[in-house]
Structures are given as C-alpha cells and as structure tokens.
Design a protein around this nucleic acid. Sequence first.
DNA 1: TCAAAAGTGTTCTCCATACACCCATGG
DNA 2: CCATGGGTGTATGGAGAACACTTTTGA
Lengths: 226, 226
Amino acid sequence: MELYKIHPQHYVAVDCVILGYQDEEIKLLLYPRSFEPYKGNWSLLGGFVQDNESADEAAARILKQTTGLEQIFLEQVASFSEPNRDPEARVISLAYYALIRIDLHDEEKVKENGAYWIPIRKLPNLIFDHQEMLGKALVKLQQRAGYSLCGSELLPEMFTLIQLRKLYEAIFQHEFDPGNFRKKILSLGVLEKLSEKDVSESRKGAFYYKVKANIGDMDVNRIAKF
Amino acid sequence: MELYKIHPQHYVAVDCVILGYQDEEIKLLLYPRSFEPYKGNWSLLGGFVQDNESADEAAARILKQTTGLEQIFLEQVASFSEPNRDPEARVISLAYYALIRIDLHDEEKVKENGAYWIPIRKLPNLIFDHQEMLGKALVKLQQRAGYSLCGSELLPEMFTLIQLRKLYEAIFQHEFDPGNFRKKILSLGVLEKLSEKDVSESRKGAFYYKVKANIGDMDVNRIAKF
DNA sequence: TCAAAAGTGTTCTCCATACACCCATGG
DNA sequence: CCATGGGTGTATGGAGAACACTTTTGA
C-alpha cells in the first residue's frame, strides 16, 4: 500500500451506449445532461464506479436505473482517458454497450431521467467523446451481429425473418437479398418456426420464428461478412 | 466539481501484454514482481496512470521503460475492475497488448527489470487476473492477424514466406498448407519480393519479402478465418 | 383473378482446400 | 544425380450473389 500511495487516484466513470431497435432503425438512449459542465447537452447515460462494485456492475446498475432492465447483454467497448476529456475534472471513463428490447423497457424510468430514444442516423452532437464511444460500440455491434444472432436481444420474443433482415440491414446499413438472407439464417439451425403468422404486413402473412432454447453463444459460422 | 466530489477515486493501472516472436514461438515479457503483495510472482509489466497522461500514453511509457521501444503497435484489450482483484488496494487496471520485434528490443532494459521472454505455451502462474489479460490479448492478436499482416510488427524487416507462415501457425496454433498460404498472402498484393534469399534453411534458398511501403492498415480481405 | 408480399429454386462465380508436381541447389 | 526444402499448378466442393420463379391470400 505504501508503494501505491505515491500514485494519483482518479474518478472512474462508466458510460453506456444503450441500443435498441424500433421502426426499422437502431436507436440510442440519450438524455440532456443535468449538471455542469455542458448542462443541457446530449449525453450517454453514465455514472461513477463506486468502491464496492466492478465497472461491469456499475454499468448494469446504470442500465437498471435508467431502463428498469436486468440480465441484459452488456459488454465493454473501450476506455477513454485523455486527461482533459472532461473539462471539470479528470475522469477516466469505461464505455459499455447494451442491447435491449425497446418494447420491454420501463418508460417511466426513462421519463424520470428525461431520456429519449434517438435514431443513430439523426444524432445531435454529444458531449465529450461520447460520439466516439458510440462509433466504437456500433463497430462492436456489427462484429457481434456477424457471428451471433442479435435477434434475441433486439427483437421481441417472436419475429419474422423479414423483421430480422430489416434489423440486420439497420445494423450494417446495407440491403440483403431476401432469399439469400433467409437461406443463410435458416441454415444456421438456431431458429424454430412457429405456427403463428404475422399478418400485419401482407395478405399471405409471414411465419414467426423464435430462437431455439439452449442455443448458447452459437456457432462459429459467420452470418455476414464485412 | 462539487457534484463529482461525492464519488470515490481509484488507482488506475495499465498492464501490458508484450508479445514477441522467436524460435517459432510467441513469447511474452514477464517479470517477477518486485514488491508486495505477491512479491516474486510472475507479473505482466505495468504501472499506474499519472495525472498528466492518458492510459494509452501510460502504456507507451511502460513499454519504453521496459523494452526501449517507441512507436510500437499498442492497443487496448479490456478493463479489469473487480474490487478485490489486487488484495492490497482497489486498483482498476486497463490491459493493453503490444506487438514487438524481439530482435530490436533493448536487452539491457529488460535485464534491469529482471524480465524474461517466456513462451506462452509454457507459462507459469501469473498474479491477479493477468492470465485472463493474456487470454484476451491472444484473442485480439488472432483477430488482428485475421485481417492485417502482423508480419511487419513481429518479424524482422525482411522475412521469407515460410517464416511468415510459421508465425501464423504460432498465432493460430494451426498448420497451414504451404502452397495455399503462399498464394493467399501474395494475392493480397502487400508484399514486395526482394532479390535476396535466405539460404540458412535449405540449399535452394527462400526469397525474402518485405511489406510494401504506404500500405496502411490494409484491405478488408480476411487472411485466415477461424 | 389480380396485386403484393412470402418463400423457393437455379445458376454462376469465387475461393478455400487438398494434393500432385516441378524447380534449384549443394554435396 | 539425388535429397531437400522452395515454389507452382490443378481438381474439387461449398458458399455467397444475383435473380427468376412459385405460393398464398384478401379484396
């Protein structure tokens, strides 16, 4: 301990890139910062790492405080540690990204925080280096979507293959051939066809699917290559 | 600032997974920890983030202190923040990995630190969560090697395609077909054939290659898929 | 019966793999 | 002239891209 004492200590924060999917768009949870500096400017949801918790736990805590959700996919993005990134004080921030189902989140909690779901393609300016955090989180999302089906995290329990394709098109900003996408996904063998159909989009109706139980983090096969 | 003051501050360290390649093996720079706790146990090379530097800068500083090398490939691996990961005090550690050419490093400096190059397949136990840091660094190395030629970082200026293949075999722990590997690499168009040959391994001799100048971080083509 | 979306099938091309074969050289 | 690696060529299979085609249904 004596040896450690000659070194400085720092505030350590976590900032969460909370992503959801709605209306064929990827959306990000943001709120207008409630205190100086940059009060009123758009910010990711964040907080400080306390003494009794890991950064992972701090991120989960913030996610629960702001969306009411627990047991959510949550992963480190990167650390941000430029000495002057926060003009008020030295704060080292650990960025996380979370994938949540917008249909499940607690709207009350979001309102309390004055937070909003904002499509990532129509983003306002963000404070500090939050834009960069988002950028790296989106890269991670693409990587993850490339070898694992993100359907279960961002879509409702049941979804059609068309909905899944639209999600992937939103993630990769790229159109996929409907037939090929369908074959590729089904060939993975991780989806279970249900008897029910979604008839809201067409007369014929599209069958719902759900992710098979006991599919861990899946196989090594890539879903999309970019 | 007032608002920040209610939050705790923490020691923030960086730990470097310094990787090199020698004798057809990936090696890791380790030293026996020189102070308590766990004095004498094997440890990554690390240090504390100071007030005037980012974590990236701290990692570069440590790399220079221990190997004499600058301008080296250095990238974040992950953060480690379990409250009790260091029994002496709460230390949040940011792990980095570096790829260096063992033939260029400063042996004097390494000796000063009592450090050694240890093949990663014959590793002793490491302190704290350093084993996990190495594990994640090796995954990152494979990912990087998958879409970029790590040759320039881990091999000497000039190298034969056989040497490059052996390097990749060490990284992926997997044998590659000599002919196919050769074709794949050459098809990328990033290597320049030299007139000189390495005659130490065979009568015929193998041509040296070097990475073409002004090749940035290369193309998107994957070199190996795993 | 027709429009519109859902879903299937077919072809072509590219690329990774496996492996046979040729080349250069010193002893 | 032959053993030894270095280096090239070829056949095959599987996966992705493009796109034509069939199915289902309500109006």
